[in-house]
Design a protein around this nucleic acid. Structure first.
Lengths: 229, 229
DNA sequence: CGGCATCCTTAACCCCGCCTGAAGGCGCCT
DNA sequence: AGGCGCCTTCAGGCGGGGTTAAGGATGCCG
């Protein structure tokens, strides 16, 4: 599940990103309205958290522009209760829900889950990814390997999800860091290697191939035939 | 779009068939597992809706048998939530998605659409360069020569990609050094020759022509005639 | 026909990318 | 307050690939 957070208060944005990442979401963060509009148009996010007061372009206009472009990604608006902006106005521009600052993290999480659930039952993309003998249910966050359930941590699941979204394609470490970790993560890329390592141990080493100098690739392995031949 | 419904509850099957027919699908219905397996093998359906509890042969075994036979038609499984069968088990046998009874018709329709969409888009998105009997998939970084996969290193792939981007055009060593190596590479241009050499060995010498004093050219060579002679 | 320049190919070296085990730190639950 | 699980960092080790170098082959020009 990929989320985009558009919020210019850096501290708030980072803390939200951290919490949501720990929940297993792939979170990207931008601090500018124009940039948010661009990224939301580029990447198929599952949900956008959109602040109203933004440099570059305010939240209403970002929301309206997305809807005008035919993008129906769920949008959760964050409004400050200073009276200058009216909450209801956000809904008029096409937002799906709004939250008034200050809000508790738990409430935010619940709203996000609710929106995602609503969307899921409304029937957008199928929540189950199947690659060879491997299946991951993105709704229940469960992974099965040839019939047996494998328990993965949030980060492990997120890494695997990135691979499974495009089976057989090479996913670079940089992409991993962008989507699974914060999009401006500057830590050691080795961390990706560590997670690949544990995933191999849990899922079978042959399923994740290393493409030296390029990235990693999830291939179909199992009873139902080899990878894309 | 042809659908096969394998479902023994006659009333449910008929009502589904009626609804889906109204949506414009061509729907066949069978009430027995063995019969379902037979028809799915005979006819090229676009999707199969497969119940688990079936007379003759249960849904898991139908699904597994289809996959074992190399049939990769999208399968949407219907599971009852009575605990006897585990939903996830269906995924392990190769189903693409599942739905727990009772479900709403709208949700079923959405899931069917999602699976068909996924299948439709699965074929195209990977940009593949084809030159004669050579194909390189830039997403999976795989190269095939007359159907057989050839393993290339990262640099080898990059050099070949430069050539394949403009088939039949001459690419100079300087261009190679700029694009494949660092923009300001100051090493021995001989390195390009080294890579051309190994590429010729792996792909067939006749595919890469030397234009003395100018550079190299990738020409179409293969089952269907020569390149621009 | 001889000399020169460009190109081909092989072999060897060394660095770098990758893997993995271990340990520290943090938050969460009990 | 304690303990456990998860995330992250670090370091050792390994193997493969990138690069260099050198000798032979081929084409171009005087």
């Amino acid at each position: 599940m990929r989320l985009l957070i558009v919020e210019d208060e850096k501290r708030l944005a980072v803390s939200l990103a951290r919490g949501l990442t720990a929940e297993g979401f792939a979170v990207d963060v931008v601090h500018d309205g124009r940039e948010g509009l661009f990224r939301a148009g580029e990447t198929p996010y599952d949900l956008v958290v959109l602040d109203i007061m933004l440099p570059g372009m305010n939240g209403y206009r970002v929301c309206a522009a997305l809807r005008a472009a035919g993008n129906d990604v769920p949008i959760l608006m964050l409004t400050a209760k200073d009276g200058e902006y009216d909450e209801a106005e956000g809904l008029d521009t096409g937002a799906d829900d709004y939250l008034t600052k200050p809000f508790s993290y738990v409430v935010l999480l619940a709203r996000i889950r609710a929106l995602l659930r609503r969307r899921a039952s409304a029937g957008t993309p199928s929540p189950v990814l199947v690659v060879g003998g491997l299946s991951l249910d993105t709704a229940s966050r469960r992974v099965h390997r040839d019939g047996a359930e494998v328990t993965l941590t949030a980060k492990e699941f997120a890494v695997l999800e990135q691979l499974a979204l495009r089976p057989d394609a090479v996913v670079s470490k940089a992409e991993m860091l962008e989507h699974v970790w914060d999009f401006a993560y500057d830590g050691d890329p080795n961390i990706v290697e560590v997670y690949i390592s544990t995933l191999r141990r849990k899922l079978g080493a042959e399923r994740i191939q290393t493409v030296r100098g390029a990235g990693y690739r999830l291939v179909a392995v199992g009873p139902a035939g080899e990878g894309t031949a």
